[in-house]
Design a protein around this nucleic acid. Sequence first.
RNA 1: GGGUGAUUAGCUCAGUGGUAGAGCGCUUCGUUCACAUCGAAGAUGUCAGAGGUUCAAAUCCUCUAUCACCCA
Length: 1033
Amino acid sequence: MEKTFNATQAESRLYDAWETAGCFAAGANAKPGAETFSIMIPPPNVTGSLHMGHAFNNTLQDILTRWHRMRGHDTLWQPGQDHAGIATQMVVERELIKEGKRRTDFTREEFIARVWEWKQQSGGQIINQLKRLGASCDWSRNAFTMSGAPAAPEGEDGNFHDAVIKVFVDLHEKGLIYRGKRLVNWDPHFETAISDLEVENIETPGHMWHFKYPLAGGETYTYVEKDEDGNIVLEEERDYISIATTRPETMLGDGAVAVHPDDARYAPIVGKLCEIPVGPKEHRRLIPIITDEYPDPDFGSGAVKITGAHDFNDYAVARRGGIPCYRLMDTSAHMRDDGAPYAEAAALARRIIDGEAFSENEIDAINLVPDELRGLNRFEARERVIEEITQEGLAVMTDGEDGPEPFVENKPVMQPFGDRSKVVIEPMLTDQWFVDAEKIVGPALDAVRSGETKILPERDRKVYFHWLENIEPWCISRQLWWGHQIPVWYGLDLGAADFRDDEGDGSLDLVELGRLLNEGGMLHAGDVHHCAADFDAVLRAFRAELADTPHPIADARIVEVEDKHAAIHMLAESLAHYAIDQDPTKLVYPVWRDPDVLDTWFSSGLWPIGTLGWPEDTEELRKYFPTSVLITGFDIIFFWVARMMMMQYAVVGQKPFDTVYVHALVRDESGKKMSKSLGNVLDPLDLIGDYGADAVRFTLTAMAAMGRDLKLSTARIAGYRNFGTKIWNACRFAEMNGVFEADLPAVDYGAGNDADQTVNQWIIGETAKVREEVDAALAAFRFNDAANGLYAFVWGKVCDWYVEFSKPLLQGEDAAAQQETRQVMRWVLDQCLIMLHPIMPFITEELWGTLSARDKMLVHADWPTYAASDLVIEQADREMNWVISVIENVRSARAQMHVPAGTYIPVLVSEIDTAGEAAWSRNETLIKRLARIDSLEKVDSFPKGCITVPAEGATFGLPLADIIDVESEKARLEKSLTKLAKEIKGLRGRLDNPKFAESAPPEVVEETRANLDQREEEEAKLKTALTRLAELG
RNA sequence: GGGUGAUUAGCUCAGUGGUAGAGCGCUUCGUUCACAUCGAAGAUGUCAGAGGUUCAAAUCCUCUAUCACCCA
C-alpha cells in the first residue's frame, strides 16, 4: 500500500464503479420486505453550479441515503433540476449577446429551442459536480421540471409538464387560481412580475423630501402642534398640507392624501381637496384628503400621499378608500409615453374626482405623466420633479448655513431589489395569475402543528407558521418565454352589452356587424378566458361561450392566433368577408393563448409527486411517497417547503414528507455570507481537488450542529484530510501484520465478544458503544455527533491505543493471541470502514476493496446492529482504562522530568492491591512498551529521589535520583495538589450540604462520594511524595 | 419596529442542571519498523455582564450590552 490515499486518482474510479454496478438505483441493496427510505433532492437550478451550500446540503442527504441503504432499507435518493425561468433565460440571452443578437430577434419557438439546446449541452454541469462530491443519487431517474413540455427535444421526455398543467387546470377549476389586476413586484430589467420572495429588501442611503400640497381654492386652516403635555408649541395659518416622501416621482400618480383619523392637526381639512404640486400649472390635479389608519401621526408630518399603483401600503389604502390607482411607468420602469396628452389625461382624472365611474382598465389607460417627463427613467424623473417643485417654492424650507434651503432628510430606506436582476423593483399594477394560498394553507399548517410532519430544528416551525399564517396570494405568472406556458386561452367577449341580435333572428345584419366592428364594439370589449390542458380541450368551453351569440358566429370555426391584436384583426376580416359573401362556413372566432409562463416554484412545488410520475399511478409513487426526509436550507422554508406542503395537500391530499431537516448557511472563515461580489467564495470543487471529497464531506458533517451557521476554514478541512490518512495508515499497519490475510478465518465479533485477550475484549466493546452512538446521532439528525464520535473512536481509541496495544501481541510468541488479535483488528477496522462510509465514502471503499476480497462493495455492506450491552465487558473496560491512565501518568512524569523519550527506565511500585497486580501482570508488556519501562520492582517504600506516580490501587515510583530536579518535581506535585484541593473542596462542599443528599438523585450522590474518595486517595499519595521530597531537599 | 438566534481556549465551534470539551493554532521533546498529512508532553477559560430559581447553573428565568439573520 501507498503511504497516503490518492483521492484524485481514486475518486472518479470508485464513483464509476458504484454507478456501473447500479449501486445507487432505487431499491438497491434492499432486504426483502424492507422499509422504504426516500429523499428528494432540493432541485438545483439547471443553470447552477455547485456551491458550498449545495455541498453541505447534499453531503447530509448522502449520509442518510448511504446509511439507510447499508441498513438494507429500500432506498431512493431522487435527483433532478428545476428549469429556473429567469436564470435560464438570462443565461441564454447572455450567450446570444455574444453573437450580437437579442431574444427579441427570435420567435418564441426559436428562442425556446435555443434554451433546450443550451440545457442539453450545459445543463448537466451540476450533476457531474454532485458526482464528484460522491452523491449517491439514482441518476437513472434524474428529473427535470420542464420534462415533457411541448417543445422538449428527444431525451427530455417525462411527464413533469403534464403534472404542472394538470395541477393548474385542477386548481383553476376549484377556484383556487384566479386572474386579476393587482399590485405586484415588477422587475424592470427582466420585465416580469416576481413573487415577494424573489425580492431582497436592502437598506440603502436615501432621502426624504418634504413638499407642500396647496389646498384647493386657496383655502386656509389653523395648524396647531402640541407637545406631549398638550401645550401648544406651534400655531400658524396654513394654506397647504405638508407631505414627506422618498419617491417624489410617484407624486404624479397620487390619488389622495391620507391622515390618521385621530390626528387633530388635520381634522379641519379632512374631506377637502388639495393640489399635487407638479405638472403644468394650468392642469394641476386635485386630490382629496382622506382618513385611514395607515398614516403614523408621529412619523414625518403625519400626512401620507397615496400612490396606489406604485406602493404596497398605498395600494391597500387606495383599495379601502376607493382611490384610483394611476400607473405611471411602463414595463421597463420608464415614465409612460403612451396614451393621450397630459391635458386630456388630467381632465379625465378630474372627472373621476367629480364622481364619475371609470373601470379599472379605463383608469389604467390614463397616463398622468406630464408630456415633458414622458419616457424618462424613474430616477431622472425624480430629479426633475424635485427641481420643479423647489423652483415653484413648494418645498418645505429649513434654515441652512447660507439661509433657507429645502428640507431634505438623509435617511436609509429599505429598497427592494430583484434577487436575480439586482435592479430596484417597482410595484406595478398588472394583470396576473394568483394562487389563492389562503384557501389551501390549512392542511399544511395542521400537518406541522400535529407533528404529522416534523420540522427540525423545532424553532424553525415558528418561521413556517408565521409565514403560512400570514400568507398572501401567490403571484404565479411570469412574463417570460422559458417555462410552462399558462394553459389559458382568451377570446373577445362578444357577449358584451352593446352587441345584440336586434331582431333575435339568429343572424347578423349589417347594423349589428357594424356595432361589433366599430368603436365601442369588440375593440373595447373585454376578454373571456377558459382554462384547459390543451387547445382541443379548451375548444369545448369556447363553443359553449359562443352558444349565446347570434348564428352564424355561434358556429364559427375556432382557431388559435398569436395574440389579441391578431384576433381582432382576424375577426374583423372574417366579419367583413361575411358581410359580403354571407358564407357562414368561412367565419372564424380567433382565440389566443396567455403568453405568460408559470413561476418556476409552482412546478418545483410539485417536486415530491412530479418526480415519481404523478399524475400517473406509478409503482414508485405508491412506494416512495410520502417521502421520508427533506433536507434543505432555511432560506427556502417559504419558497419551497411551505409551498410543497400546501400543494401536495391541495393536489393529492397527503403530506410530502415525514421530516424536514432545515440546515443553516455555510459562511466564510470570518462569518460572512459567501458571495461572488465579496470574492470570499470557497469553491467546493477546488476544495475537493485540494483535500479530497471525503475531507470536505467530513468537515461539513462535523460542523453540522443543528441550526447553526458554519464558518468554513481550510485548516479544518486539512485536519480531516489528515484523519483520512490516519485510518489509511492504521489499515496499512494491519495489512503489514497479516490482519487481512486471506487464510485468516473471519470472525464476526458483533455476534458475541468471545475474545480472550483483555485488549481485544475492550476494543470490541468500544466498537459497540460507538455504533450505538452513531446510529442514535444519525437517527436524530445530529450529524456532527456522528462525525465527532467516529473521529474520537477511530483516532483516539483505535489508532492511539488499540493499534499500540496490539503490537506486542501481533509480534509476540503467543500464536493463539496473535491470531485472535489479527481477527479482532480485522473486524474492528472493517467496522470503522463501514461506519465511516456514509461520511467518507471514497477512502473507505478504496480500503475495503484493497485490504481483502469482499462479497460486496462497501457501499452495500451490512450496517451493524450489535448492542453495547451485549459486547461490553466491564472488567476489560476497567482494566484497559487503568492501563491507559498508568501509561499516561508515567509518560507525563517522564516528560516533565525531562527523561529522554527513548530511554527505558526502571519503575518501582508500592501499595499495589491485588486487582492492580493482576492488571499489571496481564498487561505488563503493553505498559512497559508504551511507557518505556524496562523493569518493575515491588518495594515497601520508595527510596529518596523517587518520582511518585499515583494510580488507582497502586503507587508507582520512578527512581530518578541521579537526574531528578527536586524543585521541578516539587512544583509538579504542588500543581497537581492545588488542582486536587480545588476539586476536593467542591466535592466535599456538596457532600457536606445535607440538602444535597436529600434532593440529588442517589446515583449522583454515590458518584460524588466515590469521586471524592478517589481524589483524597490521590491527594494522600502526593502529599507523602512531597514530604519525602522535603527530606531529600 | 416585530421575531429568531448568538456571545464558551488565540481562532472556529460542540456542550439542555451534576468534575468545562473538540479541531486548528501555540510551546517543548521526538524521524522506535502504520502514519511527520505523525507521535508524546504542555500552556491557555470570571462560559458577555448583572440579578434570580436550585442541593447544584455554561445550561433554566429576568434584565443589560454587543453582534448576526429573518420579517415589516
